[in-house]
């Protein structure tokens, strides 16, 4: 019986804690009646800024709560097609086939809103001596059939990378960043197999931080002092520009892209208010704070 008493002592507080959590969660859910909860899903690139929007919007005081989740642009669009979200975030255009599917499934055509811009940064480890890179080189490195597999082929020797092999860090195929990189940098060619496909923008930066041999790409908002962002040129011979706010705004940085929010049909009521707020000054200030490029 002593044994059971010990177990009881351990389990009981845990159970108590859990049930307390359950109880304390309830009122928050109940207060959201009707359309006062907005479901927002999609792009991992945008998930940080979408979180900040949602949190800040609480303070506006309209009693609207916004539920944000990531998963990738494709995931958000798939949810929009299924009609289970109010707003889908995407860091790539919705394909025509996807728009048609959404219209067929839900009876409403998706409407696109540009809510900000993002520069896609190419990351290498901090000690990597490489400074700039061109689209051709990136294609040779990343695309199927490309010939560059070693750092020495780029003319550098990377400290801490004894094998000289370039370790490719990429994104899972539902990612808008993945699709954008394939379309605009690789010219629609497929990626090489064997890249480490990470499930989040942040994980790419984390893996590159700890792996001297690696190269990766992700939104510039995810940059940390522990990685290095390469300057990028679209063509050989062009001047390479770094991913900064100015270069993205004046379009000299070649891999900048728009960030979109999609709704089913023209938004109404609280969803419209929310999108207007995002595209207004308050929302755009958050875009800038999160490391992205605001609309103006």
């Amino acid at each position: 019986m002593k044994i059971n008493f010990v177990k009881f002592c351990i389990c009981f507080p845990i159970l108590m804690g859990m049930s307390f959590l359950l109880i304390s969660c309830k009122p928050a859910e109940q207060s959201g009646s009707g359309k006062s909860t907005i479901q927002n899903k999609g792009s991992d690139t945008m998930v940080n800024v979408a979180q900040s929007w949602a949190e800040e919007y609480q303070n506006v005081g309209l009693g609207v709560s916004i539920e944000v989740s990531g998963g990738g642009s494709g995931t958000g669009i798939a949810a929009l097609i299924a009609g289970t979200v109010d707003i889908a975030n995407a860091s790539r255009d919705m394909k025509d086939s996807e728009k048609a599917l959404a219209t067929k499934n839900t009876g409403k055509a998706p409407v696109e809103f540009t809510v900000g811009y993002d520069a896609l940064a190419v990351f290498v480890s901090k000690d990597n001596p490489l400074e700039e890179i061109t689209f051709e080189q990136l294609t040779e490195i990343y695309a199927e059939g490309g010939n560059i597999t070693n750092w020495s082929q780029l003319g550098v020797e990377v400290p801490g990378c004894s094998s000289d092999e370039i370790i490719l860090v990429s994104r899972q195929s539902s990612s808008g960043t993945y699709a954008f990189f394939r379309e605009h940098v690789l010219g629609k060619k497929d990626f090489k197999l064997g890249s480490r496909d990470m499930n989040g923008s942040k994980e790419v930066v984390e893996l590159v931080t700890g792996t001297p041999c690696s190269i990766g790409y992700s939104g510039m908002g995810y940059a940390t002092p522990d990685v290095k962002m390469l300057k990028v040129a679209a063509k050989k011979g062009d001047t390479a520009y770094g991913p900064t706010l100015e270069n993205a705004l004046n379009k000299t940085y070649p891999i900048a892209r728009a960030l979109y929010s999609y709704t089913l049909g023209q938004p109404e009521g609280t969803v419209k208010d929310y999108l207007d707020w995002i595209m207004g000054d308050a929302g755009q200030k958050i875009v800038k704070e999160a490391g992205y490029v605001p609309l103006q």
């Binding site: 995931t75 798939a78 195929s173 539902s174």
Partner: peptide, 9 residues
């Protein structure tokens, strides 16, 4: 797990 979410039904 990583791809089913995006694959159109």
């Amino acid at each position: 797990a990583s791809e089913l979410g995006e694959a159109p039904t």
